[in-house]
Computed example of a mutant assay.
Amino acid sequence: MLLTVSGPPGSGKSTTAALLADEFDLEHVSGGDIFRELADERGYSPLEFNKLAEEDDEIDRDLDRRLREIAIERDDLVLESRLAGWLAGEYADFRFWLDAPASVRGERIADREGKDPERATEETRAREASEAMRYEEYYNIDIRDLTIYDLSVNTARWEPDAVLDMLVTAVEEYEPAGDEGMTPVTDVDYDF
C-alpha cells in the first residue's frame, strides 16, 4: 500500500504521516526531512535553500526524482512531501492533502523552530510562493489544484489523533471503484 500525505509547511504532514506509518506498519519517507538534510549539509536554512533552489533547478529536480523513484519502486510506504500526491501519481493507493490557515501553520512552525510566529508565518508564505512558482515552471503543476486528492483535511480543527482517526477510517473504508474512481494526474511534466 502506498499512501501520500501532502500539504503546505506547518499543516501537520510530518506528524500525520508518521502516525499513519505506525498505524499501518508502513515505512515513512519524508521529502521535507530530505530537503532539510540537504540544506543543512550545505549550511543553509530551509528558506535560504529554497531561495537557492530558485536559481538552481537541480535542487528540486533531484529531490523530486528521488521521491518519484521511491513511489514507483517501494511498497508499504507513507510518502510525505508537498508534491507526494503528484509525484506518486497512479502508484498511490490513497492521496491526502492537509492544510490549515497560514497563521496556525506559522505558530506551529514557530513552536517547532523557536521563532517569532509572525516571522515564521511570513517566511512560510514566502517559501510557499517560491515553491508554487517552481512547481508550475518545472512540472506544470498547480499546487492549489486539490482535485487529485482523495481527502483534504483542515488540521486546525482537530488534534493530531483525531486527524489520524479520520485518515485511518478513510483508508479502511475505501472501496476501490476502479480507474473511474481516481482522479488521474495528467499534464505533469516529469522532466527531472
Rank of each mutant, 00 (worst) to 15 (best):
M1N: 08
M1K: 11
L2R: 06
L2E: 03
T4S: 10
V5P: 05
P9G: 15
G10T: 10
S11L: 03
G12R: 01
K13N: 12
K13H: 11
T16I: 13
L19M: 12
L20W: 06
A21E: 13
D22Q: 08
E23S: 09
F24D: 04
L26D: 02
L26A: 10
E27L: 09
V29A: 10
V29N: 01
V29P: 00
S30A: 10
D33S: 15
F35R: 00
F35I: 01
E37L: 05
E41D: 14
R42C: 13
Y44P: 01
F49K: 00
F49S: 07
K51W: 04
L52E: 00
A53K: 01
E54R: 01
D56A: 11
D57W: 04
D57K: 05
E58G: 13
R61C: 11
D62T: 05
L63C: 09
R66F: 08
L67G: 12
R68V: 02
E69C: 14
I70L: 10
I70Y: 06
I70M: 13
I72D: 09
E73Q: 06
D75V: 04
D75P: 14
D76G: 04
L77P: 04
L79G: 02
E80A: 12
E80Q: 10
S81R: 09
R82M: 14
R82G: 09
A84T: 09
L87D: 05
L87M: 07
E90C: 11
Y91G: 11
D93Q: 14
D93P: 15
F94L: 14
F94P: 09
R95L: 07
W97K: 05
W97R: 14
L98K: 02
L98I: 07
D99R: 02
S103D: 11
V104G: 11
R105L: 09
G106L: 07
G106E: 03
E107Q: 09
R108L: 08
R108F: 05
A110D: 10
E113P: 13
G114T: 02
G114Y: 08
G114L: 12
P117K: 01
A120F: 09
T121A: 14
E122K: 02
A126S: 14
R127V: 14
R127G: 15
R127F: 08
E128R: 13
A129K: 02
E131S: 06
R134I: 06
E137L: 05
Y138M: 02
Y139H: 12
N140K: 08
N140Y: 12
D142C: 07
D145N: 13
I148L: 12
I148M: 03
L151F: 06
S152D: 12
T155N: 08
R157I: 06
A162Q: 06
L164H: 06
M166K: 04
M166P: 13
V168R: 02
V168E: 08
T169N: 07
A170I: 06
A170T: 03
E172V: 10
E173W: 03
Y174N: 07
A177H: 08
G178E: 02
E180K: 12
G181H: 15
M182Y: 15
T183Q: 12
T183C: 15
P184A: 15
V185T: 07
T186V: 08
V188I: 06
V188H: 13
D189I: 03
D189W: 09
F192P: 04
